[in-house]
C-alpha cells in the first residue's frame, strides 16, 4: 500500500495571519500529502503532542508575529525531549535573513520566507522526508 507523507501545519504564538499557512496546506494537499491543520494560536506543547499523536513526518510552523526565535526552537526542543526528533521541522513567515542561521542551528531544517514558491516547499518535503 502506498505510504502518504503526513504533515502538520501549525501556527504557534499569537498572530492571527493564517493565509500563508492555508496556502501551504492546500499546496501540500494538491501534491498528494495528508495535511493536518491545527488552527491558530497553539502552544509549542500542543503542537508537539499533535505531531506525535498524528504520527507526522514533518511539522510546518508559520509565524508572522516576530516570536519565531523563541517558538520554533522550542518546538524542536520539545520534540527532542519526547524522542521524536526524527520529525522534520520547517518554518515560514516574515523572518529576517539574519535570524535564519540561528534557527537552523537550533534544528529547524529549512526556513521559507515570503515569495517562496509552493513547489519549493513540496520539493523540499519530498526530498527530506524519507519513509
Amino acid at each position: 500500500m502506498e505510504k502518504k507523507i503526513r504533515v502538520l501545519i501549525a501556527k504557534p504564538g499569537l498572530d492571527g495571519h493564517d493565509r500563508g499557512a492555508k496556502v501551504i496546506a492546500r499546496a501540500l494537499r494538491d501534491a498528494g500529502m495528508e495535511v493536518i491543520y491545527t488552527g491558530l494560536r497553539r502552544t509549542p506543547e500542543q503542537i508537539v503532542t499533535a505531531a506525535i499523536q498524528e504520527d507526522v513526518d514533518a511539522v510546518g510552523l508559520s509565524c508572522l508575529s516576530g516570536a519565531h526565535n523563541h517558538l520554533f526552537p522550542r518546538v524542536v526542543e520539545l520534540l527532542r525531549e519526547r524522542q521524536a526528533d526524527d520529525i522534520v521541522v520547517i518554518g515560514g513567515g516574515v523572518i529576517p535573513d539574519a535570524d535564519i542561521p540561528g534557527l537552523k542551528e537550533a534544528g529547524v531544517k529549512e526556513i521559507f520566507t515570503p515569495g517562496t514558491s509552493t513547489e519549493d516547499v513540496v520539493a523540499f518535503l519530498k526530498t527530506h522526508v524519507g519513509r
Binding site: 502506498e2 502518504k4 496546506a25 492546500r26 501540500l28 494537499r29 494538491d30 501534491a31 498528494g32 500529502m33 495528508e34 495535511v35 493536518i36 491543520y37 491545527t38 488552527g39 499533535a50 498524528e54
Partner: peptide, 15 residues
C-alpha cells in the same frame, strides 16, 4: 481524501 491527488486536508482537529 482528494479523488484526484489522494491528498487531504484533515481539519477536524482544529475544532
Amino acid at each position: 481524501s482528494s479523488p484526484f491527488t489522494g491528498g487531504a486536508i484533515l481539519g477536524d482537529r482544529l475544532r
